[in-house]
C-alpha cells in the first residue's frame, strides 16, 4: 500500500509543508521520488515504531474524520416508541409500569433501570412543569446501541413533585448509551417543550406518527 504526501500528512497530523521539509531533510523513508512522492506503508510503520511516533493506519478512522452525527430527536422517539394509558397512582408505579412495557430495554435490565430512575427521582424530581416529566438515569446505559426516547402517556395525571406542582400526564424517558448524546437530546427536547402549542398538542395524546411528524417540524426550526 502506498501513500501520497497529502495522505501521510493527515495521518501524522502535520501540514504537507512539514512533510515536504522532512523529505528534503531526509527524515522520511520515501519509496519513489520525483514530483509525486509515494511512501510505502511497511517502511513507514517500521520508521514510526523506531521513533515512537504514532501512525494510525486503521482504515475505519476516516481521513477527514467527520463530526459525529447527532441523533435526531424524532429518530430517537421513533426508536423508543410511544406508549399510552400507563396505569399508576404515584411516581414509582408509573415508572415501573412504563418500563415494563418498553420493548427496547432487555428484560434482564428492567429492574436495574427502575432502580436508577427511582434514585434519580429521589435526588431531584424530573418533573419540569406544565405536566411533563423527563425521567432519565444519571449513568450511561451500555446495553443500548443508540439513544432512545420512550414516551409514556399516563392513564390519569399523577403528582410528580414537579416544580410548578402541576400533575404530570406525560413522561419522556431519555435513555442513552452515551452521556453526551443525553445532553444533546435533553436540550433538543426542552426546545420543543418551550413551545406552548406543542404542550397543547401533547395534551390530546396524539398518535405516534403524528407526534413524530410534529417533532420533525419543530426540529427544522431549531438547527442544533
Amino acid at each position: 500500500m502506498e501513500l501520497s504526501v497529502l495522505e501521510l500528512s493527515k495521518r501524522l497530523g502535520v501540514t504537507p509543508i512539514t512533510i515536504e521539509r522532512w523529505l528534503r531533510q531526509g527524515n522520511l523513508p520515501v519509496s519513489s521520488k520525483g514530483t509525486h512522492c509515494r511512501f510505502n506503508k511497511k517502511d513507514l510503520e517500521n520508521w514510526a515504531s523506531k521513533r515512537n511516533i504514532s501512525l494510525d493506519f486503521s482504515e475505519n478512522k476516516n481521513l477527514s474524520s467527520p463530526e459525529k452525527e447527532h441523533p435526531l430527536l424524532s429518530a430517537a422517539i421513533q426508536d423508543g416508541g410511544v406508549y399510552y394509558d400507563i396505569k399508576g397512582d404515584n411516581v414509582h408505579q408509573v415508572l415501573k409500569n412504563s418500563i415494563d412495557k418498553f420493548t427496547v430495554i432487555p428484560q434482564d435490565f428492567k429492574d436495574d433501570l427502575f432502580d436508577r430512575l427511582a434514585r434519580r427521582e429521589a435526588a431531584l424530581s424530573t418533573g419540569i412543569g406544565k405536566g411533563i416529566a423527563i425521567p432519565h438515569p444519571r449513568e450511561q446505559l451500555h446495553y443500548l446501541t443508540s439513544p432512545v426516547i420512550c414516551v409514556s402517556f399516563l392513564d390519569h395525571p399523577v403528582d410528580y413533585n414537579a416544580l410548578d406542582q402541576k400533575q404530570v400526564f406525560v413522561l419522556f424517558f431519555i435513555l442513552c448509551p452515551d452521556l453526551k448524546l443525553h445532553l444533546h437530546l435533553l436540550s433538543a427536547l426542552s426546545f420543543c417543550l418551550k413551545d406552548f402549542q406543542f404542550i397543547q398538542f401533547l395534551e390530546q395524546k396524539p398518535a405516534a406518527g403524528l407526534l413524530i411528524k410534529k417533532i420533525e417540524f419543530l426540529q427544522q426550526r431549531n438547527t442544533i
Partner: peptide, 13 residues
C-alpha cells in the same frame, strides 16, 4: 508543543 516534540524526535533520532 505538538510539532516541537515531533521535530525534536526527528532531529535526535
Amino acid at each position: 508543543l505538538d510539532l516541537y516534540r515531533r521535530e525534536l524526535i526527528m532531529q535526535t533520532s
